[in-house]
Computed example of a mutant assay.
Amino acid sequence: MAGEIETRLAELGVTLPEAPAPAANYVPYVIAGDLVHISGQLPMDASGMVKGKLGDDCSVEDAAAAARLCGINLLSQLKAACDGDLERLVRVVKLGGFVNSTPDFTEQPKVVNGCSDFMVEVLGERGRHARSAVASPSLPFGVAVEIDGIFQIK
């Protein structure tokens, strides 16, 4: 029987993919006490990665959609960390957003809202979190955004 979070994902038409494997020498998540620290997730789905640089060849709207994909991948990693049971989630504690930006681009918060809004849409009050949204001169594979997170579980 699907839990509340899985039901909400289904209502939104979101199917969580298998948790992506690490792309280098790190682990996808670390559990420390009741906190799960999830490594940065890229905007990737079955059609590939969303690439681009804000202020150059990527719009805020496209990058916000990419940030939403990062949120989906964060929940995939969280599900793996919770042995498949997302109902163990107590709350999203913090998200860290990195936006591939030109030096004059200043709308990083609007980009990372794509992930933040998704967390609240799926998780309600459990999805409200602290956050950072910072510019980066480049990101792995040329992606538009990368987001990591800290989640409290039971």
Rank of each mutant, 00 (worst) to 15 (best):
A2M: 13
R8G: 09
L9W: 12
L9D: 05
E11K: 00
E11P: 00
E11F: 01
L12Y: 05
G13H: 11
G13T: 08
V14Y: 13
L16D: 10
A19R: 03
P20V: 03
A21H: 07
A21C: 00
A21E: 12
A23W: 03
A23D: 12
A24M: 04
V27I: 04
A32V: 08
G33F: 01
L35V: 01
S39F: 02
Q41C: 15
P43V: 00
M44Y: 06
M44P: 02
D45H: 03
A46K: 01
G48Y: 01
G48W: 02
M49A: 05
V50C: 00
K51G: 00
G55P: 13
G55E: 09
D57H: 06
S59H: 06
S59E: 03
V60E: 10
V60T: 14
D62P: 02
A64H: 09
A66T: 12
L69W: 05
G71E: 04
I72G: 11
L74W: 07
Q77G: 13
K79R: 15
D83C: 02
G84W: 14
D85L: 01
L86T: 04
L86D: 10
L86P: 03
E87D: 15
E87T: 03
E87V: 00
R88C: 02
L89V: 15
L89A: 08
V90H: 12
V92T: 12
V93R: 14
V93E: 10
V93T: 08
L95M: 08
G96A: 08
G97A: 07
G97I: 00
F98M: 14
V99A: 12
V99N: 13
V99M: 08
N100Y: 04
S101T: 14
D104C: 05
Q108D: 06
P109Q: 13
K110F: 05
K110P: 06
N113S: 14
F118P: 12
M119D: 07
V120T: 12
E121S: 15
E121I: 02
E125L: 07
G127P: 11
A130L: 11
A130P: 02
A130K: 09
S132A: 07
P137R: 14
P137V: 09
P137M: 11
G142I: 10
A144Q: 08
V145D: 09
I147N: 09
D148M: 10
D148S: 15
F151W: 14
F151I: 01
Q152P: 01
